[in-house]
Design a protein around this nucleic acid. Structure first.
Lengths: 119, 119
DNA sequence: TGAACATATGAACAATTGCTCATGTGAAAA
DNA sequence: TTTTCACATGAGCAATTGTTCATATGTTCA
């Protein structure tokens, strides 16, 4: 076995040079982390439901809670997460705060996911 | 206050009929759940890294572990999750099992996420 | 068959997460 | 100003999750 070879998988698999290339092809650690964090936000059915409701109409927190049959507190906590991820925006109007989708990426990401599920 | 109105948000927000419509516009509970489950799979940086590596080349478990500097066991556990979500496929070749991306949805979902992050 | 290797998997543990409950903040009306 | 309503948020708890460790399964070769 040549000196530069990696001692793995006996002899059938990759070696140092090739592994280096694969590693080099990865995005920054930060970007990978941020990507995972973004998808984590989509990875909860309450938040997915909030987003779907907002597809249809801008809504205040109270109505979101009513529409999804959840407490106002639970919805507020989730809205905070969605807002931090820049998936929704909040607009104050008197006592109420109206939430809406931040941009069209939200729709396309969810659509892509839906396509995958439908096989 | 009319009988059919919902007793929420005083008087400025939605009422029963409108809320019904919003609720009716939601996909099945099952589909919402499946969608969240799918995104949950993308919501871990180890799995994102595995997918990124597989963008470049089909690899056996052992090399994936080496490329990502993780134990074989950790990688195997994650591959199982990725496989269940039909994001990767495994192909046995002798003692090794080679994993590859299952289809192009994986790439487009990740690309959409990346676009969102880059603002 | 038995040994060696690649991979899969179950149990256990620490860390994270989503909800509830109580309370804080901000805006409008009395 | 004080009250009331809409929303935000911190603490606490149960449930979930990712990794490690030990071990099981499956394949090749002697």
């Amino acid at each position: 076995m040549a000196i530069n070879d990696v001692e793995i998988c006996e002899d059938r698999c990759l070696h140092t040079d090739r592994l280096e290339k694969v590693r080099a092809g990865l995005p920054d650690e930060d970007e990978l982390y941020d990507l995972a964090e973004l998808f984590k936000v989509f990875g909860d059915s309450t938040r997915i439901r909030i987003l779907y409701v907002l597809f249809q109409s801008e809504l205040c927190v109270c109505d979101l809670a009513e529409a999804l049959q959840m407490t106002q507190s639970a919805i507020s906590h989730q809205l905070k997460i969605l807002k931090q991820a820049k998936l929704v925006t909040g607009r104050r109007e008197g006592k109420s705060v109206f939430y809406a989708l931040a941009d069209d990426h939200v729709r396309s990401i969810i659509d892509q996911g839906r396509e995958h599920i439908e096989e």
